[in-house]
Amino acid sequence: MKATAGVDWCEVVDALAEKHDRKPHALMGILQDLQMEYGHVCPDAQIEVALALGISPTHVSDVISFYHFLCSEPKGQYVVWLCQTISCDMADKDQIAKALSDELGISFGETTGDGLFTLEYTNCMGMCDQAPAMLVNDEVHVSLTPDSAREIIAGYRREGGLG
């Protein structure tokens, strides 16, 4: 993930607008690219997107606020998304939530002090047959138990600590 300090957003967004289009319909594509590259879409970048597409910055941020996988503030290196929709909920997702929270020492919506993990809920990601499920960045983990959830976190902690 690239750092955002000192980035000339005007230039970055201009290149993306060239790639996607300079009309409002290009908004999602541009936001997804920015999110992928930088892990979030900061307010300065949002303003440049708005200017490039001829819409208001408010509407850019209003769209970002609607989608779980877009955000305007940086998150941890690993974002843990626990599914909260019916199948996972009925398969005891609350147990998993508690295990994750305990293991990381944070509540949902928060980021660990070392910046390694952010804990979030997501809605259905299509893994209902293997509930409960969670996503860590773009890797899916299914049929979770409190223990397996803790182990998975420990694994990322090792990986992140090394990297």
Partner: peptide, 20 residues
């Protein structure tokens, strides 16, 4: 054509608000 206001968040959390 000002676009000062938008709807932020979703579901029960949603609210009419300004940029940032």
């Amino acid at each position: 054509a000002v676009g000062a206001l938008g709807v932020f968040g979703r579901g029960p959390e949603s609210r009419v608000d300004t940029f940032e």
